[in-house]
Write a protein that binds this DNA or RNA. Structure first.
Lengths: 145, 145
DNA sequence: GTCAGTGCAAAGCTTTTGCAGCGCG
DNA sequence: CGCGCTGCAAAAGCTTTGCACTGAC
């Protein structure tokens, strides 16, 4: 079952409530904003988006909310390599990886079932207790090449 | 053919010479230091290592040399996700990926031929002109779990 | 002699922390 | 009504840039 953004928003708000966290305005705003996005965003992009919507949130709160959600495995942090962290919702039944353009910095998603299968086999064979994985393909996007 | 560190050092110094770059002390020191390492290092670790050897290099030079070598595809930059970039020699005939411990930050290498094969197939099927790739497995290492 | 390469210091950016106050439960 | 959540500002990293000077070619 593919869960869409709206489902993630609701599930996330419920999970934080059930974890005994109080619901302030900043967390709700960040969660609702993230739930409307398709791919990974930087903290600054989330901050700017909220400000553009007229929400007076602090960027520190954005980081605090994201940290908490990453900890709860509701958000995945993706480092595409420019020293800037990106964040995206963890959707049930959907899992993708990223193409990164070395020239313009564009990031796009791709999926591949065989790739997932091989990674799970590899993860099962190492000494680490692997909880998540990430595949990055770096290169030139259609526009830049 | 597996090329060892010494081969990389020599090949890299030759490549920079042939690219018309002048050979100052800092680049030579960084290249020779990197050639002696097995896995990825941070710029700070390289800087500290050189200082420990008594080389009076500036950290800015370490970054400048690394940038240049990444550009020439002689060094690969690896972002394991703590906001700190890591760098490692690109060895001919050897290619590995990384296990990252979420608790202690330890980074280890692993290889898997089937994984490489699948990634190359995926890379050939996307719109990007893929030049490099990177697989990160995050979890708890043997000591931390 | 020229100018790329270098070390040091200062600046820039992302991210974290301190703190007072608001407001959820 | 306590204490978690928040915004703001300041601090703390990592990385880059400015600048004068050295040394390779």
């Amino acid at each position: 079952v593919i869960e869409v953004g709206a489902g993630w928003t609701e599930r996330t708000l419920r999970a934080t409530r059930e974890a005994g966290l109080r619901s302030g305005g900043a967390r709700r705003a960040v969660v609702e904003f993230l739930g409307r996005q398709s791919c990974c965003l930087t903290a600054q992009e989330i901050f700017d988006g909220l400000r553009a919507d007229g929400r007076r949130v602090g960027i520190a709160s954005v980081y605090r909310v994201l940290d908490r959600l990453v900890e709860m495995k509701l958000v995945q942090r993706v480092d595409v390599g420019a020293g800037i962290a990106r964040y995206e919702p963890v959707l049930d039944g959907e899992h993708h990886h990223h193409l990164v353009c070395n020239d313009c910095g564009r990031v796009e998603a791709f999926t591949d079932p065989a790739l997932e299968q091989v990674i799970h086999r590899v993860a099962a064979g190492v000494e680490y207790d692997v909880g998540s994985h990430e595949v990055l393909l770096h290169g030139a996007c259609a526009d830049c090449r």
